[in-house]
């Protein structure tokens, strides 16, 4: 167990270091003077220019600059957005709320729906399986941004059931959540159903049945637990996908959030903000994976005693 924790910590440090290095490389690969790249299309006073050169150590050798940058990021200083006239951390902080709300709600919906679907469809009649796997195929093939457009066109513009703009209240959250949750739900359902089907062939399932346990009871009490580990692993991987999906979804539903912030930054060549968001998601990846490791312990008691 201790070995596992150490490996996880080492990987986490590596991922964070990698993200910082990727950002630093991007900054220096961008054509043009680094100061100009950081400023983007804005005009600043000579004092601000001098400040940037001091902050990033731009008059030092490249290796020293790298060390300076690494040190600043470690202290949580993500730099300044000269386009927004505020620090990157402030800009991200102001937008992270609505994004977390959307991501959290989407993951929750995806987990509940896929668990229900998997339990109901695993090892059922062939046509149920056929139908659900066809739907899953469509679910993973539809681009998320088009799902969002489709939902907006049908339910907001044609039927008028939901507001077309803004993040206000629960009604504004419904369509964005469906768009973000759809691909996650289909992938989870597919994996959980396959896992359940394998588990339901195990001898202990037969034992439980001979004790007079109902079919649904066996699925919920015994089989489900066995697919939780791969499910949790997949969810960890899907977090990255969710972050990506949110960029387009936030734009289509005109929601505030990190996606909109990033998109504006890409358009305005506001590199500090894009770098900040990349670093933020690397941190998110690390945190999620630590949580997943802890969940493994919770799910499988054998892992706890292995230490």
């Amino acid at each position: 167990m201790i070995r596992r924790i150490l490996t996880r910590l080492a990987t986490s440090v590596l991922v964070l270091w990698g993200a910082v290095t990727v950002s630093f490389t991007a900054l220096h690969l961008t054509p043009g003077n680094v100061v100009d790249v950081l400023i983007g299309s804005n005009i600043v006073t000579p004092e601000v220019r001098a400040q940037i050169i001091r902050d990033y150590g731009l008059d030092e050798p490249l290796l020293t600059q790298y060390a300076t940058y690494l040190g600043r990021v470690l202290r949580g200083d993500l730099g300044q957005s000269y386009q927004l006239h505020e620090s990157v951390a402030t800009a991200i902080g102001a937008q992270i709320g609505p994004s977390l709300q959307l991501a959290g709600a989407s993951l929750l919906v995806a987990i509940v729906v896929s668990t229900t679907l998997a339990i109901l469809t695993a090892r059922r009649k062939p046509w149920i399986r056929g139908l659900s796997s066809s739907l899953e195929l469509i679910g993973v093939s539809i681009p998320t941004f088009w799902t969002a457009i489709l939902l907006l066109t049908v339910f907001s513009f044609q039927l008028g059931w939901f507001p077309a703009v803004g993040a206000e209240g629960l009604a504004g959250l419904v369509l964005p959540v469906i768009a973000v949750a759809l691909p996650i739900t289909t992938m989870l359902t597919q994996m959980m159903r396959e896992g359940l089907e394998l588990t339901l062939e195990q001898p202990f399932v037969l034992t439980a049945r001979t004790r007079g346990m109902s079919d649904l009871g066996v699925r919920l009490r015994h089989a489900l637990r066995h697919v939780l580990i791969p499910t949790v692993t997949l969810i960890g991987w899907l977090v990255g996908l969710t972050v990506g999906a949110m960029v387009a979804v936030e734009q289509i539903f005109s929601r505030q959030g990190i996606g909109q912030l990033t998109l504006a930054a890409v358009g305005g060549k506001d590199l500090p903000v894009v770098m900040g968001v990349v670093l933020l998601t690397a941190v998110l990846y690390v945190v999620v994976n630590i949580v997943i490791d802890l969940l493994y312990l919770l799910i499988d008691p054998r892992l706890r005693s292995a230490s």
Binding site: L14, V15, G18, A26, V278, Y285
Partner: peptide, 24 residues
Amino acid sequence: MRLVEIVLSLPTLLLALLVITVTG
């Protein structure tokens, strides 16, 4: 392989956005 692991751990679309911020 460490390099591969790092790239795979970053969200794909964001990485693409970072590249496009640099390249246009």
